[in-house]
Simulated scan of single mutants.
Amino acid sequence: MAKGRQNSETSDFEAVLRGAGLRITRQRRVILAILAEGGDHPDALALFRRAARQDPTISLSTVYRTMKVLEEKGAIQRHTFEGGPARFEHVDSQHHDHLIDLDTGAVIEFRSDRIERLQEEIAKELGYEIVSHRLELYGRRRKD
C-alpha cells in the first residue's frame, strides 16, 4: 500500500475514534497504522502481535476496544469465516468477494462482474432487489 494512502487511512481511523470520544493514544496510533498498512484480513490476535512488536505496552483489550469502535462506526468490517476467528478489513468503496483457503487460512479477494450480474438476475426473477450481499467461497488448491 502506498505510504500516502496509509497515512490517509490512519487519519480517517483516528477521526472515527475521536468522533466516538476516544483519545488517540500512542498504542492506538500503532494499531491504526498496522490496520492501514495491511492488505490482509487480520484477526484481533494477529493485530495485537504485530502491534506488541512495535510497542510492548499495548494490551489485547486495547486492540479489541479499538476494533469494536471502528466496526460500530462503519470504518472496518468484521468477517467470521467458517471455522476461524473474526477477521477485519477496511470498508472500501469497491465491492469484492472472498475465497478462503481452507488449508492456509489465506483470504483472497476477488471481483467478478459475471457473478454480480447473475445475482442481480436471480434476485429480479424472484421479485427482489439486492440491498447487500456477501459471497464467501471455501476451497483448497487443486493438485493437478
Rank of each mutant, 00 (worst) to 15 (best):
I115Q: 06
H98L: 03
D40C: 12
R49G: 05
V131C: 02
H95V: 07
A52N: 10
L70D: 00
I108R: 11
L99V: 02
R117A: 11
T66R: 07
T25Y: 02
A86E: 11
V16W: 06
A52W: 12
H96K: 03
H90M: 09
L70H: 05
H41G: 00
L45N: 09
E125M: 14
H41N: 14
H133T: 04
S93Y: 10
H98W: 03
E116V: 02
M1Q: 09
T10L: 12
Q6T: 12
I24F: 01
R114T: 11
R49Q: 15
G139H: 09
S112F: 09
G19Q: 03
S61W: 09
R114V: 11
V107R: 03
D55C: 10
H96G: 01
A20C: 02
A52K: 14
R53A: 13
A36F: 07
R134I: 10
F110M: 00
L22S: 06
D43S: 08
I34C: 04
G39E: 15
R53K: 15
I122C: 04
L22C: 01
D92N: 07
L118I: 08
G21N: 00
A15F: 09
R5Q: 15
H79S: 08
D144T: 09
L60K: 10
I122N: 00
I122W: 14
E109F: 05
R141W: 15
G83E: 10
T10E: 10
Q6W: 06
V69W: 07
S112N: 04
T62C: 03
I58M: 03
R18D: 08
A44D: 12
I31H: 02
H90A: 09
R49N: 10
V131M: 13
E89H: 14
R142W: 11
A15P: 00
F81V: 01
Q77K: 12
V69N: 01
E71S: 04
D144W: 13
E89D: 10
T66K: 06
G84W: 15
L70P: 00
T10Y: 05
G39Q: 14
V30H: 07
R111W: 03
P85D: 14
P56T: 12
E9Q: 14
E9P: 00
L70S: 02
R134K: 15
Y128W: 15
H96S: 04
V131E: 14
I76E: 01
R5H: 14
H90F: 08
V69M: 03
L135K: 06
R23E: 15
F88P: 00
A106Q: 15
G38E: 14
V30Y: 11
A75Y: 04
K3V: 06
E136S: 14
I130S: 07
L70E: 05
K73C: 03
H90R: 10
E129Q: 13
R18N: 12
Q54E: 12
V107D: 07
V63I: 14
G19N: 08
I108D: 04
I58N: 05
L32R: 01
